[in-house]
Each structure stands twice: as C-alpha cells, then as structure tokens.
Write a protein that binds this DNA or RNA. Sequence first.
DNA 1: TAACAACATTGCAATAATACGATTAATCAT
DNA 2: ATGATTAATCGTATTATTGCAATGTTGTTA
Lengths: 110, 110
Amino acid sequence: MGLAKTEIFSNKQNQIASYSKVFGHPARVAILEYLFDKNACICGDLVDEIGLAQPTISQHLRELKQLGLIKGNVEGTSVCYCIDKEKWTEMKQVMLAFLDQDIVADSKCC
Amino acid sequence: MGLAKTEIFSNKQNQIASYSKVFGHPARVAILEYLFDKNACICGDLVDEIGLAQPTISQHLRELKQLGLIKGNVEGTSVCYCIDKEKWTEMKQVMLAFLDQDIVADSKCC
DNA sequence: TAACAACATTGCAATAATACGATTAATCAT
DNA sequence: ATGATTAATCGTATTATTGCAATGTTGTTA
C-alpha cells in the first residue's frame, strides 16, 4: 500500500530508517558531501554544482532540514546552508550502533 | 517523476544511496537486527517475529539479498537466512567513510 | 516604487515502494 | 502418490517519491 507500518516497530528502528531514508537518494548524499567539502555555509551554488533544477534541490534541502541534519541561515536574498554538527554527531551514534553490531564467528549455517 | 537521476551522480554516491535505501524501511532494519541477535540462520520465524504478512517479509528479504547483505540457505522446506559478513563489512566501510566526514571546527557561519 | 535576485511553494505527471491475497513451487511426512 | 508445510512469485490497490514548470515570497538595488 505504499505506507510503511511504522507503529509495529521500535522507536530506534524507525529512527534508523528515517536517517537512512534521507541518505537513500544520491542527490542528498551529494548535497551533504558538498556541504562537508566546503566546510562553510554555501548558498545557491548547489543548483549549479548538482545537475538538478532549483525546486528539486530546494525540496531535497527541506528533507535534510526536517531531520535537522542541516541548518539554513538567511543572508540577504540568499540562504546559507551548512551541516548541523551536533545533530550529525547524534545521528552518527545511532547509525554506528546499528552498523557496528557484533558479528559473532560461529554461526550455524551460511 | 519518481525516478532518481542516478546517472548524474558518482558511483560512490549511488552506492551510499543504495545501501541507505535498503535501511530506509523499519522492517528491514528489524530483520537485520533479528538476524544479528540470533547469530544463526533463522527461517520463517521472521514472519511471526515481525508483524507483517509472509509475502511482505519475503519481499524485504529479497531486497536485502539483492544487495548481498544476507544469504539464504534452503534447509528442507524452510529457508535459513543470515548476514553475509564479508559484504556487511564492505558496506560498513562505505557508510563509515560517508558518516565520518571531517567536521572541521572553524566553519564560517551557522 | 519598480525591477531584480535568490529561494520557497504549489501543482502535477510519472515512477517507485509497500503490503497482502491468491497462487505456485519445492520439500517433507505418511 | 497424497497432503501438509514453507517460502517465493504474481497481481494489484494504495501511498510515497522524484522532478520540474509556474508561481509566490522576500530582500536588494537602482
């Protein structure tokens, strides 16, 4: 039905899924990498840098902003986006706990 | 259009997006956590464990299998799934490189 | 104030994802 | 062989996502 049954899963599981979902599009990965690379707030160059239309970029930025991973400062007529470091660290904790699950050696099969 | 323009992004960016996408649903997160927790191949208990119908679970398992993150061994009438450790480690490298991007202290704003 | 610049929003078309009933395929038990 | 069990696949309804043209909003500049 296109609608995930989030209510039957734990908060942690839904949180991991939410973070992952936002990373699940290469444009958003590219935006974040660009923001990291510049290590400073950048503004409208994202549209030129990534080959997507302005409304599309704006939409991706909004999703990143909704999760709190980026912040936007209005600077005159342009808006300056950058990584929210606290939130990024917080997200990283959650994701690492998931990715770093112990792989015990003696599994029964496979 | 519902169709991501993957061709304008790098292989690495698309790879990160692919891994993230598969983690972008709580059911698949739950399946993986259960597989890790049991540290042994389990079969149809996933249907009982997670509250989704059998075809739905089977569909999620297929997506995980397509990415290579899990393996399935046929054991009689049931199928035994477990984490593919090599592939998991490989995936972890890629994801960590993305998550661990340097957050330099002296950013210009925000 | 009027024109402009930079983004955000809206609306829409096209495709993808989610979920499950029904069915099929394979194996086991008798 | 027959029936039961397990899981994969098919078909389909429903919702979500992606992308962009058109338009709106806000602040700047002449």
